[in-house]
Amino acid sequence: MTDDLTLTTTHTDGHLAALCVGGEIDIHTAPALRREALDVIAQGHPHLILDLTGVTFCDSSGFNALIGIMRCAMAAKGSTTLAAVPDRLSRMLDLTGLSSIMPSYPSVEAAIDARLTATPEPA
């Protein structure tokens, strides 16, 4: 595979942020995805939405990065929500049971709405 990966924070609002991921998530790029996501969480956005619209490939290294991101978000009393998950990755999440703790939505907007409903801002 290649090192082509794009990461862009597209939404931040209180404890919620959306990170747009594009390209290939593999052994070469998964560490960058993890670092960027953990940086967003550390900036005070523990409820993270990963927009996977532009993901063209994801191997086991990428899958493990998603699990690591989810664990770090949970440790920060947050969550990881996925948006626009490619079919292959969606099947992998279903087969492993992770789709039950890392929910996915068809779009970032739907994921934001769901997260805002599920996790209101503290007073």
Rank of each mutant, 00 (worst) to 15 (best):
L19E: 02
I67F: 11
L52C: 11
L7S: 11
A30N: 03
A32G: 09
M102H: 05
H45L: 11
L93W: 14
G97W: 13
I27E: 12
G97T: 08
A118G: 06
N64C: 02
H11C: 01
H15N: 09
G14T: 06
K77P: 00
C20G: 08
D13C: 05
T119F: 13
V40P: 00
S100V: 11
M74Q: 15
T81G: 01
G68L: 03
A65K: 06
P31T: 06
V21K: 06
L33T: 01
E109K: 04
C20A: 15
A75P: 00
T12S: 08
I69F: 11
L98N: 06
D3M: 03
R34M: 05
M70R: 09
P46G: 11
A18W: 00
A32M: 06
F63R: 04
G54C: 03
I27M: 14
H47T: 03
H47D: 09
T56K: 10
R71W: 03
H47C: 11
L33K: 07
L95C: 12
D3K: 09
I49K: 05
S60A: 12
A65T: 03
F63A: 00
D3E: 10
T53M: 07
L50H: 02
P122T: 13
L66I: 09
G62Y: 09
L5K: 10
G62N: 07
S99I: 13
H11Y: 15
L116S: 09
G22M: 02
L93C: 07
A30H: 04
I67M: 11
L66W: 12
H47E: 06
L116G: 01
A83C: 03
L38T: 08
H28Y: 09
P86A: 10
A42T: 14
H28T: 08
A75E: 04
M102N: 02
T96D: 08
D39N: 14
V40Y: 03
E24C: 10
I69A: 05
S107I: 08
H47G: 02
L16V: 15
L48V: 04
L95F: 13
C72Q: 15
A111F: 00
R71S: 13
I67R: 03
T96C: 12
A42E: 13
E109W: 00
L52Q: 08
V55Q: 05
H15W: 07
H28V: 06
S104G: 12
I41T: 11
C20M: 08
A110H: 09
E121A: 15
P86W: 10
I41N: 07
I41P: 00
L48Q: 07
A75Q: 12
D39C: 06
L66Q: 02
G23D: 04
L66M: 14
L16D: 01
C58I: 01
L95D: 04
T56Q: 07
T29R: 04
A118S: 15
A30P: 00
E24H: 14
R88I: 10
I101T: 15
L38F: 09
Q43D: 14
I41D: 09
S99K: 14
P120G: 13
L82H: 05
T117Q: 15
